[in-house]
Design a protein around this nucleic acid. Sequence first.
DNA 1: CGCTATCTTGAGTAGCGTCAAGTCATGTGG
DNA 2: CCACATGACTTGACGCTACTCAAGATAGCG
Lengths: 283, 283
Amino acid sequence: MHGGFHYQRATSANLDASQIRYKMNPIPDALPLISSVMSTVHPLRNVSVSQLRTACSSCSLHELCLPAGLEADEMEQLDRIVNRKRPVKRGEYLYRAGGALQSLYAVRTGFLKSCVLHDDGREQVAGFHMMGELLGMDAIGSGKHMCDAVALEDSDVCEIPFIELEQLSRDIPALQRHFHRMMSREIARDYGVMLLLGSMRAEERLAAFLLNLSQRFAARGYSATRFNLRMTREEIGSYLGLKLETISRAFSRFQTEGLITVQNKSIELKDPERLRALIGQGA
Amino acid sequence: MHGGFHYQRATSANLDASQIRYKMNPIPDALPLISSVMSTVHPLRNVSVSQLRTACSSCSLHELCLPAGLEADEMEQLDRIVNRKRPVKRGEYLYRAGGALQSLYAVRTGFLKSCVLHDDGREQVAGFHMMGELLGMDAIGSGKHMCDAVALEDSDVCEIPFIELEQLSRDIPALQRHFHRMMSREIARDYGVMLLLGSMRAEERLAAFLLNLSQRFAARGYSATRFNLRMTREEIGSYLGLKLETISRAFSRFQTEGLITVQNKSIELKDPERLRALIGQGA
DNA sequence: CGCTATCTTGAGTAGCGTCAAGTCATGTGG
DNA sequence: CCACATGACTTGACGCTACTCAAGATAGCG
């Protein structure tokens, strides 16, 4: 594992990009657990550029992503409009606030953040996005993106032209259904963030954040208790409405209390139950 | 204006319900300004129960609400599935967290709030809803409502069975389009709330809140500078992630600074520009 | 007319932010 | 492969904002 390697690194079926980017971390990324999601995976050595263009039907994310619930022939129709495998390098913008909506984007590999900007330069992280999640839905209302989307590590996304998606979802009820579900889940997620920002104290917020990440990794077949953060303390703080020093102090405190082990970007949840119980102390 | 009057009070074209509910307030609600939205209004004295059942096409909100952009015949189709005029009395729940999604609801008259609940009893107001706005979109993802919706004053809503809406929006592209827009706008609004909760200080939050209300009243043909609050200080505080005392102090401070006049629930914006400038001081 | 919910205001405090110094990772160029 | 530069993180001391607790005023309602 060394630099110069990373163009071959990522398949749609693994998250190991992060292991390469953070290759010096003493604790590697959680290894994928055996799960139904992983059943169609090609081993790393078999990956080639052509295989990176896999159709939705052979993408390991199709249960999580937009094609969930589609029949084979419907998935094929969706495949025809999806522009697969657009790479976004770490630090690159997928889109910027104010830019016209062209497509929605499904994360294939990697990790991104959305940032809302304020005139005075303040910036607020509105969300972190991992594989199978859909970005850009904030732009449908006005035709313009409300936020920046930035890759936190080298990532691949599928580009889904919005006009064509809307057209196709008229013909395929299951697609329409699932698209509505994904928009609605974004709204429900936002309500959760509001609850967090509006009524939790610093340590509760961080605990909720860690448990949320844990649950999302678990849903993708990775360890729920050991994972690597892809974002800085400052980005976590921005998302949680706190300063980076507060995040750092809370991590340290959790560690001395035996709730987690934290070493740089690597996290291990030692006692998820006590972490969960911690939420609700500040009522 | 006195009690016992209020069953005749509200047409789809006025917000005056609040003037009756808060009839003792020295400053009445802003009167509707002349605007395109008001062109089909019946004067109050002509209102009858049958007219309360008006179709979307004759509803003064159709430019703001779900039927925006539909042709006459399309609007007729939508009309057939909409269960018009379900009254919700002050304090009544339109739906509750955990309840199964049946319908979306469009506010016709009145004012409602959505509240997210936390296990430990904490409650966070996630939004306030006025005429032309759509509620319940958080429930599509899971099939269950994520929050309570409560009327803050006697209100009327149109009930739109979700399954039928989805069906119909396959046949009517303009309806599909607009429905997507409304969901997306909810997401964009949520991002704005996150920015507010995550990075503004108390007085900035309140200023942003007042300006937002102002803008929404203006979009409905009412005064942008004089209006009545329909919610308590505690509800404003909950929405803004602050305590009621903080809201009260900020109101007082704004008043002594000449930014607003506030008397109980009635608000006048004396200097919207300085109010706007105030946002961005705390960077 | 009195009861209750809502609001205002004050005094004291806790929690998180600010500022600052120093350590540790990452990755670059010699 | 090592030395150094840079960005990320940790920790401490201090300050300020908003919270808590409390008392009193006011409005709305029966």
